[in-house]
């Protein structure tokens, strides 16, 4: 499992992350929920080492190595002039656990072409492309930062589809999103964040079964102050 313990990050006087701890189990979809500025993105970037944390530990299956986690940000990270094909080759060159077949399969499903220039793609297509860069790595943990943000309905459905597909198997997923409606029925676990702190954590099906509450219901309760 992916364990995060006591994460702290300050920017000047502000505690962007205040003692954040949680775990992500393998084979589950865990959603980090919080209002804007709650620190969600910072946590994900902190886990991946893109932002140095003031303190706290991140353990992935017991080690500090990030080799078992793939990260999918909501912005474009490949050099500007590259085509989709160039990018896939780049990943293949750098990563031993790159799965070319998965990449090709997703490329077909998402109807992207190797010759497409990345920066010319629409926002939706760029998002799908980013998904490929993450999902085509044979890694047991996947971290996604706002995979559905600012995307049209049809592309959202395609993206949500991937969480019901075979590509989900054997993966522990941690994601942040505001679009809870679209993926409510896919979530296993929910972590609520406010002002850099974890204020609630629960199993989504349990919340439904024991309390008849959807994730959104619980969200309203928890943030009602």
């Amino acid at each position: 499992m992916l364990e995060v313990h006591g994460l702290k990050k300050r920017y000047g006087r502000k505690n962007v992350l205040d003692n954040v701890s949680f775990t992500v189990q393998p084979n589950t979809l865990t959603c980090l929920i919080g209002l804007n500025g709650a620190g969600k993105s910072t946590i994900l970037k902190g886990i991946m080492g893109l932002i140095p944390l003031d303190s706290g530990t991140v353990l992935i299956d017991g080690t500090g190595s990030k080799d078992a986690v793939a990260y999918i940000p909501d912005l474009q990270t490949m050099p500007g002039h590259m085509t989709v094909g160039d990018a896939l080759d780049y990943m293949n060159d750098h990563y031993a656990d790159w799965n070319g077949e998965t990449a090709e399969s997703l490329l077909r499903t998402f109807q992207l072409m190797r010759t497409d220039v990345i920066t010319d793609l629409s926002k939706g297509n760029q998002a799908k492309f980013n998904l490929i860069l993450g999902f085509a790595l044979d890694r047991p943990y996947l971290i996604l930062d706002e995979p559905l943000a600012g995307i049209d309905i049809f592309t959202k459905e395609q993206i949500a589809w991937i969480f019901t597909s075979e590509f989900m198997e054997g993966r522990g997923i941690l994601m942040t999103t505001h679009e809870i409606d679209e993926i409510e029925h896919l979530i296993d676990r929910v972590i609520f964040l406010q002002d850099g702190r974890v204020i609630d954590e629960h199993d989504a099906e349990e919340m439904r079964e024991l309390h008849g509450k959807s994730v959104q219901d619980r969200m309203r309760e928890v943030y009602a102050r």
Partner: peptide, 13 residues
Amino acid sequence: RELAAQLGINPNT
């Protein structure tokens, strides 16, 4: 796996 895809649910479910 097929059921998850057909119904649009998490394979774990």
